[in-house]
Nucleic acid binder design. Structure first.
Lengths: 226, 226
DNA sequence: AGAATGCTTCGACTACAATCGAACTATGAA
DNA sequence: TTCATAGTTCGATTGTAGTCGAAGCATTCT
């Protein structure tokens, strides 16, 4: 017994409601200040401060000072993936939040997962990219084909700087609402940014929802048909 | 806010040391009795009973009555995967258990992950099966090729009954010690069983370690060379 | 039937962690 | 300099979850 890594710390960090709310808010990919997170969790600033310190020393968060603000963000993609994975299992086991609000359908359709697109549209995009042979499954992840390289460059995504990063270019991430994979990694992130830039979609304030407008969705559907 | 599934319950269930010890023990794939689990966690029977009830109602465990014993096991593969994923992140963040025992290297080399082979050897097997074209990455999982079908049948693994199960045949599972994938699913489980039957390896008592004997390891290496 | 084992329920105790008010530090604005 | 805002630290309070002893069922053994 007492073999392997210790999962209790991670579990207990995630297991507190206030902290879970903060983490969920940060899953939107935006860095938030301590007071914003306190508001998100519905607790006082002092309490939030203590929680944030714990999560930081536990490796879940990183902190960036900027003027008199302190911005907190998820430490890395792995933390985001774990949170999504837990949401997947929680959903499967029926652990829903007390009030499943009216936003729920919109959230299932298109939302931000840390920094890339998730939900029905995210899964569809992934399927389409695979079906057209732009991405291809590799050893343990995803690879970019020559066709894919041309496609993305044609979509005004500059691959060169992305490939220089330590972060993997393509990665698959499990979707809690669909239990299917969608595209993560720096390429997934770049695609989402491109959708914003093109004016196809925008972020809904204070939420993970990504809202496509009518022409934007039309373009998206044409480009990522299955 | 308050969007999506609730991860606090899962987190807090996993976040208690006694429960985490039990879950880790169950990750060996064996069903254990309440008293065995109490011993594993180092707590009294009463306390264990309360923990087990909570984990059961939280969907992490299932219970099977057999005579005057109650056997507990992980509820499904997803629970096992989540635990391995958490161990992966915990290891990466340096959350090791206080005493990293002498068993640790053996554990990294070959261990049971719920019901299939993990560790260096598990990863090597996966790599070999992919390299030889017996398995192939598919949409969101793994597929069996015609060559692969012949290979496994030749290895005296009867695929027909496995394919009838609701459980997926092939599945990849992330390894915490390697951060690479190994083969899960009913096929992964069948392979491990076959190794036991052939006398290549055996389980080390009260541990997740799988110990290969010299000729067994030789055969394994020949069969799953990379 | 009676005894023993395996497990759960009940009740009481304890320890710890979340919480907030108040005081303190740091940055920025007037 | 003085004031205001953002955040942390300290101390005290509170609630709750983990813990075990004792008693209660259920099943098997003799």
């Amino acid at each position: 017994m007492k073999e392997g890594p210790d999962i209790t710390l991670l579990g207990s960090l995630i297991g507190d409601p206030a902290r879970a709310n903060m983490l969920t808010a940060l899953l939107s990919g935006k860095a938030l200040t301590a007071s914003e997170l306190a508001g998100e969790a519905g607790i006082s600033a002092q309490t939030a401060s203590s929680h944030l310190a714990k999560m930081q020393s536990g490796g879940l968060l990183i902190q960036r000072k900027q003027g008199r603000h302190r911005y907190f963000a998820l430490a890395d993609d792995d933390v985001g993936s774990l949170l999504e994975a837990m949401m997947g299992l929680a959903a499967k086991k029926g652990h829903l939040r007390t009030r499943t609000g009216p936003k729920d359908p919109a959230l299932r359709r298109a939302r931000v997962c840390y920094n890339h697109l998730a939900g029905d549209l995210g899964v569809q995009m992934m399927d389409s990219l695979l079906a057209k042979g732009f991405l291809t499954p590799e050893n343990e992840g995803l690879g970019l084909t020559e066709d894919g390289r041309r496609f993305f460059e044609g979509f005004a995504i500059d691959l060169a700087p992305l490939e220089k990063l330590r972060r993997p270019l393509c990665k698959s991430c499990l979707d809690w609402s669909n239990r299917r994979s969608h595209l993560a990694g720096s390429l997934g992130s770049a695609l989402l940014t491109r959708f914003y830039d093109l004016g196809w979609a925008r972020r809904v304030e204070n939420s993970r929802i990504v809202s496509f407008n009518t022409p934007g969705e039309k373009e998206f559907m044409r480009m990522f048909a299955v």
